[in-house]
Design a binder for these strands. Sequence first.
DNA 1: CCGAGGTGCTGGACTCCGTCTAATTCTCCG
DNA 2: CGGAGAATTAGACGGAGTCCAGCACCTCGG
Lengths: 144, 144
Amino acid sequence: MKKDHQHSEFPHNVDMAELLRAHGITPTHQRTEIAQILFAKPQHLSAEQILSIVNQDKPVASKATVYNTLGLFAEHGLIREVIVDPSKVFYDSNTCNHHHFYNVDTGTLMDIECERVSLGELPTLPEGTEPAGVDVIIRVRNSG
Amino acid sequence: MKKDHQHSEFPHNVDMAELLRAHGITPTHQRTEIAQILFAKPQHLSAEQILSIVNQDKPVASKATVYNTLGLFAEHGLIREVIVDPSKVFYDSNTCNHHHFYNVDTGTLMDIECERVSLGELPTLPEGTEPAGVDVIIRVRNSG
DNA sequence: CCGAGGTGCTGGACTCCGTCTAATTCTCCG
DNA sequence: CGGAGAATTAGACGGAGTCCAGCACCTCGG
């Protein structure tokens, strides 16, 4: 199969390439395509969803690349992993400090602006550890 | 293989049987054995760990039964599912309102008494939903 | 005592998300 | 150009959890 990593005909890609570079990530065709999907709007997508979206018109990235890329983005703080469902991880393109509603009936994830949750200061951490993130998940179910 | 659901030679089992009945669960040999493991002390075990503990001396319960039982216990509020690691679910025998530290380096889970985390009142829930639980997870990593 | 029906348990096959591997392609720079 | 190192790929693999068809055991009525 022929590849064309170097052709970036969409000006949009340039912005994404800059964004990636700004986070210390070498931009590639696959990475910019995935970044565009993620940053099209604030949303919560699973790896499987991203895999199918990125390849819906023509094959762009393999499963391994999607997983690698999402891990890389999360590692560099571009996106945030949200673990609420044991069966899959969601990736959140909103990295502002915020929390989540999770509807256990529908599997839907919604943001909560952090001002709407008053969380006091952190308790003393266990010996020899440093903070790596705070997740607040409010699980809800349909009342109907 | 011969079964003996009805023989409960350990007085301990009686307590567990009562506990199960009090939560509307029919006590069986497998269920009381699993309950004893869970409630021996406050702890966080995965389904796989429980499976191997319950069968370490002699075969007591199959994988399917362990999963069914843990789901049943969680459904009836005897234990609490803790979802912090995408690769497995932990079951927490402490159902008091509390939160968790999760060490991402070691995979260790620790309780935080709820008094040590000041969490204001819930934000307005999404339309047509009712609360189903609040999880606060403070992720830490080794600073060494 | 017998048989029927209901609940619970079982092992083994199966699914699904995610990871690994070995081989290929791309990029970059001397 | 040419070679080293990074990125990507297809497909095999792994592990947690689910499903299913059949068996074991309990209860109850006759």
